[in-house]
Every structure is written in structure tokens, then in C-alpha cells.
């Protein structure tokens, strides 16, 4: 109970500053300093969010599904790749530069290509999500494996452990903190990545909705969908943090 209060008190300053920003924004367009058509007031945005809530949820479901599929596939690939890179020096040496290069390709540039290759269905979206989220996870895992204690590995060797047992009992668990650091980034990327992929074509999803309201110059709805994306991203990151706490229970006891 006491801890809960402390948490609420900690939120005091962020809350005050957020209120100030919102009040400033409200008066900027509320008093007509900026035309309402260009910059809708926070209240208008809130109203749009409420009235469009059902529609938005329908689209959000699609986008979330794409992000989830992409993230799952990305995670699977990351683990396979990271374990292979840890196991064979040649794979590490050979793949690492290529991985870095793939990260310098702008997502925006590759997305239209994916649409051309794979059509307007779910495939290009999932692929894009895989591309954006697997890198931070692979790097997180590889860095994590390196923190394994040499003496601990020796000890398991002496106990007669094979490579997989050393991976399972030492390398994987010690990699968890940096894996989760990467996963948090990947989770945020995966949702935004799915939205970006939807901009370029499709029938449903928050990105598709965005392009539609943009064409209609419905700025309040535009802001409403951005707000929703922020909320969902925060929610997903919070969820990741919860899983992290569960997996690394040993870190929160004192």
C-alpha cells in the first residue's frame, strides 16, 4: 500500500508537465491562434477517439495481429540465429556484418518493395515487422551470452555437461537481462512497423485507417489514431516489463 502511494507521488511531476502541455495546446487552437482545422484541440481529439472507438478497435485488432505474428516469427528467428552464431564462430563472423547492413536499410524504403513482391495481404506487413524487430533481439542475446562466467562454464564442463546444457543452464539465463532490453525495443518497433507497412496498402489496420482519414483531412481522427498507437505501444511495453519481472524473479527479491 505504501509502495503504491510512493509510485503515485513519483508520477506527480510528469502529470503536472503533461497537463501544462495539454493546456497550452488547448489554448493554442482553442483561442484561434492556430486554425482548428490544422491543429484540433485535445478535447476534439478525445471526442474523435470516443466516437470512432469501435472502428479504431477493429483496425487495431488487425494491426496487433500482424505485429504479434511478426514479433513471434522474429523472436523465433532471433533465437535460432543467435544460438547458431554462438555455436559456430564462422556463422558469427559471416553473419554479423550482414545483420548490421540490414539495419541501415530504411524501413520506409523497403516497405514498398515488399508490397510489390507480396501483394496487399498480411505477408508484407509481417515480413516488415520481422525485419525491424529481430535485430535488437539477436544483438541482445549475443551480448548476453558473452556475460557468461568462464569459471561457471568450466564447472559445468567438469560436471560433464554438453554444449546444449551449458546453453540451457548458463548462457540463456545470463542473457535474459539484455534479451529483455532488446525485446522492449522490438515490441515497440513491431507495432509501429506494422502501421508503417499498412500505409502502403491493404484493406484494414490502423495504418490503412490513417491514410484514409488523411485523405479526408480529418485531423482530429488522425490525432486520435496517433494517440491510440501511443497507448497501445505503452501497453505492450508494460506487458513486456511484466513478463520480464516474472522470468527474472530472482532480480526483484532483496
Amino acid at each position: 500500500m505504501k509502495k503504491r502511494w510512493q509510485n503515485i507521488i513519483k508520477l506527480k511531476w510528469p502529470a503536472i508537465f503533461l497537463m501544462l502541455v495539454l493546456i497550452g495546446w488547448q489554448s493554442l487552437s482553442g483561442f484561434g491562434i492556430v486554425p482548428r482545422l490544422v491543429l484540433p484541440t485535445p478535447l476534439q481529439v478525445g471526442r474523435a477517439l470516443c466516437s470512432e472507438f469501435g472502428v479504431l478497435m477493429g483496425h487495431a485488432r488487425i494491426t496487433l495481429w500482424e505485429a504479434f505474428l511478426g514479433l513471434s516469427l522474429g523472436l523465433f528467428l532471433s533465437f535460432v540465429l543467435a544460438i547458431a552464431m554462438e555455436r559456430w564462430e564462422a556463422v558469427y563472423e559471416g553473419l554479423y556484418p550482414i545483420l548490421v547492413i540490414t539495419q541501415t536499410i530504411p524501413v520506409i524504403a523497403i516497405a514498398p518493395l515488399l508490397v510489390l513482391w507480396m501483394g496487399y495481404g498480411i505477408a508484407p506487413k509481417v515480413t516488415l515487422v520481422v525485419l525491424v524487430c529481430f535485430f535488437p533481439v539477436v544483438v541482445g542475446l549475443l551480448d548476453g551470452f558473452k556475460t557468461a562466467d568462464r569459471d561457471a562454464i568450466h564447472l559445468l564442463h567438469a560436471m560433464g555437461a554438453n554444449r546444449w546444457q551449458i546453453m540451457r543452464h548458463i548462457k540463456m539465463p545470463v542473457a535474459m537481462p539484455s534479451f529483455f532490453a532488446g525485446l522492449k525495443i522490438a515490441v515497440a518497433y513491431s507495432f509501429v512497423g506494422a502501421v508503417i507497412a499498412e500505409w502502403l496498402g491493404g484493406n484494414a489496420g490502423l495504418g490503412v485507417y490513417m491514410t484514409r482519414v488523411k485523405k479526408a483531412y480529418a485531423f482530429d481522427k488522425m490525432f486520435a489514431v496517433i494517440l491510440l498507437i501511443i497507448l497501445i505501444s505503452l501497453l505492450l511495453m508494460g506487458l513486456t516489463k511484466m513478463i520480464e519481472r516474472r522470468v527474472m524473479r530472482y532480480r526483484n527479491i532483496k
Binding site: D149, L155, A158, H169, I170, P173, M248, Y250
Partner: peptide, 18 residues
Amino acid sequence: RAGRISYMLQKDLLFEYK
């Protein structure tokens, strides 16, 4: 050949996550 003689070091090498 490892696996026959057990050993223990100055650092206890207990795994913090187990």
C-alpha cells in the same frame, strides 16, 4: 576426462537465477 572429480572454487559459483 571431466565429470568424475568434483570441485569447488573460492567463488562459490552459485547461479543467481536458480
